[in-house]
């Protein structure tokens, strides 16, 4: 009798944990989706261009630091 009661209690506990795991699974999927939607290159680019007023540097605005420490670039 005692063991049967215990088994039932454990089963209920297992069900609860499963439920929790499932809820977290749902949440994870949602967050993953949300994150990947927020970081789509298209969105990042339009934010950078419009909100932050960024643009691609012209080739004469780029300086290169060689591995020997010499800075090169075009004036």
């Amino acid at each position: 009798m005692t063991s049967q009661h215990k088994a039932r209690k454990l089963f209920v506990e297992l069900q609860n944990e499963k439920e929790r795991a499932q809820q977290m699974d749902v949440e994870w999927g949602r967050l993953q989706l949300e994150q990947s939607t927020l970081v789509t290159p298209g969105r990042v680019e339009s934010l950078a261009r419009q909100q932050l007023q960024m643009h691609m540097p012209q080739s004469d605005q780029i300086r290169y630091i060689r591995s020997n420490g010499v800075v090169t670039g075009l004036q």
Partner: peptide, 9 residues
């Protein structure tokens, strides 16, 4: 590893 297609419940 960036997700391209994801299944959500």
């Amino acid at each position: 590893g960036e997700p391209l297609a994801v299944s959500t419940p």
